[in-house]
Structures are given as C-alpha cells and as structure tokens.
Design a protein around this nucleic acid. Structure first.
Lengths: 220, 220
DNA sequence: CGCTGTGAATGTATTCACAGCG
DNA sequence: CGCTGTGAATACATTCACAGCG
C-alpha cells in the first residue's frame, strides 16, 4: 500500500484492512447526515447507494466489529453512528499540532472541519522568527524547540506535517521523540519512522498524476 | 476503492490498477532524485529499498508498460525516468484551475511544487465579490461565471476543488460542462460525475481518522 | 417476508521463484 | 554471475448467495 502506509491493524485476532477503516469513516459521515435529516433506520442497501458501494461490502465491514443490525429491518442510524464513532476512536477529542507555519499550515489552522470531527489544534510550530509569535485562530505560533514542552503539557498525540520537504524528516524525528504517535504528512517526502508510529501521506501531485495518467491513456 | 475512485484504466487490453499508477509516481520522484545525485544505473532491488516496497513489485509494475531494464545490470536512471514521465503523461504541461479562493485555495496557489511537476495554474474562481479581482501569484481571481470562457481559451483540463462542501457539486457540474475532464476534490463531499470524468478525492479528516483508529485499537 | 450476517466463491494485488539474457 | 521479466502461487479484498432471525 503506497501513499497510505498504515497496513492494517489487529482486532480480536483479525486484521482489519485500511480499506475497511476508510469506508467506516465514509459510513460515519453519511449516518451523521441521515441522522440530521431525521432518518431513523437505514438498510445496508440504502447506505451502500449513498456510499457508492454495495450492501455486502457494508455488512462485511461492520461484521468485523460486531452485529449492529436487525434482520428484516436494517440499522438504527443513531446507534450505528455511535458505534462507528467509538470504533474509529472519535468518541473523544484528539489533540493535534501543525508542524509548519507556511501557507498550507495557515489554511489548515482555519479549517474548522477538524473541530467538528473532534480534532483540536493546540499548537503550531515553525523555526522562522517572522512567524513565531503570530497568533492564528487563537493559537500562537511557537518555535519548534518548544515542541517537547507543548506535546507533554497538552498531551498531543497527532501531528500534521506541512513543512517544506527538506525539513520534514527532522521535524518528525523531533516530534516523535517528544512523544507523538500519529503523523499526517503533506510534505512530498518519504519519511522514515520507527515501528510504533502511525503515518499517512497525502501527496497532492501524486493525486494529480493519477488524473493525468488516466486522461492521457484515454486519448492517445 | 474508496477515497480514490478512479478504478483503473486500460492499456493494450490490460487493466492498470491505480496502485500501480501511484507507485509509478513514487518511482518517478526517486529516479529524479537519483539522477540529480548523478546515479546512472539502479537495480529494482535498490529502487525498492528507496520506495519502501520489494523488487518484484517494481519489475511487475514496469512490465505492464514495456521492458526497460538490462538483465544483469539494472535500469538506466535517466532513461527510465523519461519513460515513466511519458507513461504518466508528464511530458507536457497540464493546465489547471482552482475552484475556490478560500484559505486552501490560497495555499495551493502558492504551492510551487505544481510547476515543478508540470502543472500550471491558469485560473482561480470564486463567487465572493471580495475575492474577485484579487491577484494571487500573478493569477487573477475571477467569477465562476467566467469559467466557460477561461477553460475554453486556456484549454484547461484539470480542476482542483477547494470550495466549501455545499458548493462543490454545483461547481463541478459547471466546470464539467465547460469541458474539464479531471477533478481533484478536497471538499468533504461525495461528488457525482458522468462516466468520462476522472475524479480523485482527498479528505483530510478521513486520513486523520485512519490514524485515530490505529492508535486507539493499539492501546485500548 | 425483508433484511442481516457470514461462509464460500470470485476477483484482484502482491510475492515467489526461476528461466534466460547480457 | 547478476539481474530482469514473468508465469505460477499466494495473499488479500470484494462479491455472491443463502441460512436464519425478527
């Protein structure tokens, strides 16, 4: 699995694939939406239609974690949403820092979807004296040297890496040493981490290249 | 395939999977780097080490497109880079517009990695009168109503959607009608498109939830 | 009867292992 | 001899299809 790099974790002796976990996130969003619309019950077929998959996929995905439906009826929207929320670990707040106070960091600091999903940005780090001391959305930009202190005091568990490519590895090493366990990397670099760390990559140009490949072969 | 949504395209009657295409992008970056370091020849094993995969994977991926190596020697770095560049359609410039002049749009307009990879941003659209008329990195923010004209005149083929979720579907429909064939969607919405269109999604909170799932199950 | 939950079947991706060329 | 290119084998993900519960 490239571009992801998680590889699947264990539950009750079973391997849950990243594919399943991603889909659970999608189901969760849809259930949330249905709940807001006042829908009380949904069948796997109806949810599949919304998710762009098929009903067996949904039932199989859920079956790894328990049995949540009623035969002949379907799933109670609110209850299933709550279950998936718990499965994904979203029944609590996760504290996040941004590493890199560039444009992308700035954009993400203002991306309030994070809060809605239970992610709280509690720190922004950079090494540029021009940036340090600025306050973005109520969060002060601090020197990377302060990261050990902030991570410890604020019990930070996740970091989003939005540094330039050349700085990313060193920043991850320092944040890792400070105790951070999960990294979402936007820097266009392959990062090395030790075994216990969770790492996902988002590479915008790789996504664009997937489009150009498809468009080009379609026409040439 | 969720979160992606391409599904693989055809070549010489063979289906090339998105996984393979993604990896080609990775190989391409690494080869580029090796070339800059003056490395002339690389084996599949050495490249695999850098890419975080294994040598058979690399040879298999390449074999879908031709035979590029020399037995007993390996691959000529520059030549292979050039081949992959061609395969991915990167041997020319692709014109791109940004739909949405919010923070993320602003960040991406300044993300000069695009240019290095042959993507040229030729337009930015919004509907907010405050935004329209601003000039970002030499590109004027224009009203979405102008998109038909710009897409036609500038021969735009790709769009990056960075609107709020609620606006994304309408914007895609209009850009599609204007002739755009490939979309990279950052809006947290499942988008509907007709058959010929290429669409990839990047959902930051879904990536974060992959991390929280893994961290949570690891500990509880 | 309608729908879930799940083993079995299928389809797809990855890895093995080796023949064969340079 | 070293490494590629590739069929065969394996591992994994998805879909089928149906027994069984509400």
């Amino acid at each position: 699995m490239i571009g992801g790099g998680l590889g699947g974790s264990e539950l009750r002796g079973q391997k849950i694939s990243d594919y399943t976990v991603r889909r659970l996130s999608v189901y969760y969003r849809l259930l949330d939406e249905l709940e807001q619309q006042g829908v009380e019950v949904v069948s796997s077929a109806a949810l599949a239609e919304l998710a762009g998959t098929n009903s067996a996929q949904i039932r199989k995905d859920l079956s790894y974690f328990g049995t949540f439906g009623k035969r002949g009826r379907g799933y109670r929207v609110a209850a299933l949403a709550k279950e998936i929320k718990k499965i994904l670990g979203l029944d609590r707040t996760w504290r996040v820092v941004l590493a890199g106070a560039g444009n992308l960091g700035h954009a993400l600091s203002m991306y309030h979807d994070f809060e809605k999903h239970g992610f709280s940005i509690v720190g922004i780090f950079d090494i540029d004296p021009e940036k340090i001391g600025q306050v973005w959305e109520g969060i002060r930009v601090r020197h990377l040297d302060d990261c050990e202190q902030v991570v410890r005091e604020e019990k930070v568990e996740l970091a989003i890496i939005v540094t330039p490519g050349g700085a990313a590895q060193e920043v991850v090493d320092r944040l890792r040493a400070a105790g951070i366990q999960g990294f979402l990397n936007f820097a266009p670099r392959k990062l090395r981490t030790d075994g216990d760390v969770q790492l996902r990559n988002v590479d915008i140009t790789i996504e664009l290249e997937g489009l150009t490949y498809a468009l080009q072969t379609g026409r040439s």
